[in-house]
């Protein structure tokens, strides 16, 4: 009938085919990336060995933004075309994105300690990422706050889009705020130019993270589909019980 009722079998077949590749790519790219990052790339002349944190931190920060964009795209698809898989994809994307955001914050903090001497600096970028993390949390909280999961998905989809519109405004205002308050001595992360020996592991790690995202996303979506089936079975049981009691009620009514 309508795709709302469509069996997700086609998706599951596709997922079965993609998933091993995504997993394999994650391992291969991640392994190679880590080798280059930890052993073959040079230490920074200023930052020393701590620069190696960058190979986790920067791809995580990229993924934080990438996942939020993917989340917003999935939510827009869900709201406009009402495709049920888009709802599932959005729901599955959010925790992954939140984890990458948290990873970016944690590694940024670890990097900050030797560089700035404190665990946390209200640097414009870190602050924006922190707010992005809050946006993820708001999305996930709203998504899970309803007894009817469909309501949660629709409501949180609207929130995700509102948040997406807000991301550049927040970024702009935090930059503004930062220039007003921050002393200019902060060392910019990454530095002006990246040497190829550092770019290789960075890109490898970035692609490994993308592959990991696809892998986990498919797994989570599979989980969501199973949860949906279980819910449907439960509802059917309730309905069956209701129908038998109604029949019994009708029978006694006739007897009178």
């Amino acid at each position: 009938m309508i795709h709302r009722f469509a069996n997700p079998t086609r998706f599951l077949r596709l997922a079965d085919r993609i998933q091993p590749w995504a997993a394999g790519l994650t391992v291969v790219l991640g392994g190679a990336g880590l080798y280059f990052a930890l052993f073959s790339s040079p230490a920074d002349y200023q930052q020393g060995e701590t620069v190696r944190i960058m190979y986790i931190h920067v791809p995580s920060a990229w993924m934080a933004l990438f996942c939020y964009t993917a989340l917003a795209a999935a939510c827009a698809t869900a709201l406009i075309w009402k495709h049920p898989l888009a709802d599932l994809a959005a729901r599955a994307t959010a925790p992954i994105g939140a984890c990458f955001t948290l990873l970016a914050l944690a590694t940024g903090s670890l990097w900050g300690k030797p560089m700035w001497g404190t665990w946390w600096v209200w640097d414009a970028r870190l602050t924006s990422v922190l707010i992005l993390f809050f946006l993820y949390l708001g999305y996930m909280a709203l998504n899970g706050a309803f007894d009817d999961p469909e309501r949660g998905q629709k409501a949180s989809a609207i929130l995700a889009l509102v948040g997406f519109i807000n991301v550049p405004i927040i970024k702009f205002s935090v930059d503004w705020w930062n220039t007003l308050h921050q002393p200019a001595s902060v060392i910019k992360m990454g530095g002006p130019a990246i040497h190829p020996s550092m770019l290789t592991p960075l890109l490898l790690m970035a692609f490994a993270f993308k592959a990991y995202f696809v892998w986990v996303l498919l797994m989570r979506m599979r989980g969501e589909i199973n949860a949906m089936k279980i819910r449907a079975v439960r509802l059917r049981q309730v309905h069956a019980a209701e129908a038998t009691s109604a029949d019994a009620g009708a029978a006694t009514g006739e007897a009178r």
Partner: peptide, 9 residues
């Protein structure tokens, strides 16, 4: 949780 981050600007 939802609204406060949006209030920041």
């Amino acid at each position: 949780l939802m609204v406060l981050p949006l209030y920041i600007p």
